[in-house]
Design a protein around this nucleic acid. Structure first.
Lengths: 359, 359
DNA sequence: CTGTTAGCGCGTTCAA
DNA sequence: TTGAACGCGCTAACAG
């Protein structure tokens, strides 16, 4: 049997209202009464019914996180890290976290968002891995539902987000390979629909050109961000003649897969072949050899978008900047707080070195 | 503006009650009426308020999963896999999933469980990584709150669970090392409070003895289930003289850390040192070299405990078997469905081989 | 200071 | 076949 306010009221001989206010700590209730009520509540083991409270307060103190996983069986450390950051930060602000995994752009994903928004299942949602023409963002914007994204969008609307500078990040690692003397540098790309994919490929291409190297389409292979995908893409790249002396992958997981593929061929990573990644997941440091990569603070980004979302819900975040450019100069400062771009950092480890025979 | 039943009622000129029943598909409403109502609902973009429904129905269609993470920054593929299985299965049954991460045995963890149970925040919870004298299980049992565990317990109470046979699993891998000719086999253990820890250590010890090897306390090092922990434990083990020729870790993550430590010393895994793990996380297969380990189907276990929990909530699962042993024979069949022990499987890969100099 | 009334949005009696 | 009344548990507005 669960104890309700009514039970307490009956027990202490007061009205439900008074009990409610006594427990809420309102000061329009007699001190003695309050103490009596509180004692009774404690003794009877009272806990407020959270659902009833949500209904009455018209908010759920809940955030939703719909993880865009390609297959049912995902096990991407990237999402783990992000989830850890999100979960802990949500807890700090006394928000519950609703987690769901859905295939990107699937009907199930759309339905999940509709349910959350229209059914008022949560007070806000976290959108990650933004896509070109992202229907999630369009939908949430249309519905004026609170959300914060990890990643930018190509839609016109303006919304709060945190993103890392993918272009600059890929520049860093590509330049690193070029500086080491590599001239045939392969790229394991990501699904083209992802916003960061374009930027990373562009960063790679532009940096090659800046170093007098002409991008070779054969050296760019699509990947699906999984270890297996990196493995397969690397196999394709390493079958080329002449084969690349360096491979850059659009995330660490694929980079690790690429290393396996190379090692299977008997190549020594860092000598026969250099490999670079992106993300700096915890695994990267402990890989063999440790992976040279571009670091983005995933856990902290998870925390940050969560904090921003909570503030947005509580009205503490500057309202979203409009497309209206004329106001942008005056709103420069608030805009800086709601739209953050982080500069990634190159982490050089042992998986990269000079090419085997000087080039 | 959100559309409610009241809005539809006003629009079609009927009572809220009728609208509610029309949408629910009751057959005591005129066919024409039903169609009219449905059309209006669709046109107006009606979605039921989920919170209101929960309150009325006295259930939340929500499961809670409190992940026991030692630190805030966890990134354990084990939990990712489990979460994937749980999340997908929950979705299949139209249950939402509430995820929270809390430090094992902390006050925050206790408070989280109290909130879920007393506040009726969810209809059931999933308990994983069971511990000795597990207060979560005691609490949930006392409160008769629906739960299913991944792992057994040393408390008297009986409850539904799925577990893998840790003892048999460790026997397998220890015997494998012994068969290869290893005589000094180190063990990187797990936090002693975990139920599976005792079993794995026992499986290791007993198998050594069965092979005429006396367990050496110096060869058993505590680990915290993280990669870093495995790294450090392996460093300690490898500093011994003579050092072990094989190391078994209580989970794959530590095994990978141990491989790194060995490789840092210039040892070749599978030749100079054999390493074995436990779990068979996706990473294990793609490690370098691929890790010999004991496989337990984590994803499927996540699915399975979730399915059991849903059935338990819906009253489709046999009631928990009592301690009352006299009935056990008659209830053998139902008990078999609510208390499952899976037999793990040895996966031999390249990280294990004969000891360097024949022993 | 306390109680009455009212309502969050929905589903379920029970009459009509 | 439909509607009025009621309750889920809680909080807020208003009287007294």
């Amino acid at each position: 049997m669960t104890i309700t306010l009514k039970d307490i009221a009956k027990h202490v001989g007061l009205s439900v209202t008074t009990v409610s206010r006594a427990l809420a700590g309102y000061d329009d209730v007699a001190k003695g009464t309050r103490q009596r009520v509180r004692a009774a509540a404690k003794e009877m083991g009272y806990y407020p019914n959270i659902t009833a409270r949500h209904l009455q307060k018209q908010r759920t103190d809940t955030l939703a996180f719909v993880v865009p996983t390609p297959g049912p069986r995902f096990s991407d450390p990237f999402f783990s890290e992000l989830l850890a950051g999100i979960g802990n930060e949500a807890g700090r602000h006394h928000f519950d976290l609703l987690v769901s995994t859905q295939s990107p752009d699937s009907e199930d994903e759309r339905e999940t968002y509709r349910r959350i928004v229209h059914g008022r299942r949560a007070d806000g949602v976290l959108v990650v891995r933004t896509r070109q023409n992202d229907e999630r963002i369009r939908f949430l914007s249309e519905q004026s539902f609170p959300f914060v994204a990890f990643g930018r969008s190509d839609l016109g609307s303006s919304f709060p987000y945190v993103d890392e500078d993918s272009y600059a990040g890929t520049q860093l690692i590509t330049q690193h390979m070029a500086d080491l003397g590599h001239r045939r540098i392969g790229l394991v790309s990501a699904p083209a629909g992802l916003m960061f994919c374009q930027l990373r490929v562009a960063g790679y291409r532009d940096t090659l050109r800046a170093n007098g190297l002409e991008p070779d389409q054969a050296l760019i292979i699509g990947g699906d961000l999984t270890q297996r995908g990196g493995f397969q893409a690397a196999q394709t790249l390493l079958a080329l003649d002449p084969r690349p002396t360096a491979i850059i992958a659009c995330n660490d997981l694929m980079a690790l897969g690429a290393m396996s593929a190379a090692q299977k061929l008997g190549l020594v990573i860092g000598q026969d072949l250099s490999v670079g990644g992106f993300d700096d997941i915890p695994l990267a440091e402990h890989a063999h050899p440790p992976l040279t990569t571009v670091r983005q603070p995933i856990y902290e980004i998870g925390q940050r978008i969560t904090r921003m979302l909570v503030q947005l819900i509580q009205g503490q975040l500057a309202p979203e900047t409009r497309q209206d450019a004329s106001r942008s100069s005056r709103e420069g400062e608030t805009a800086a707080e709601t739209q953050v771009i982080l500069t990634p950092q190159l982490i050089i480890r042992d998986s990269s070195g000079p090419p085997p025979d000087g080039g």
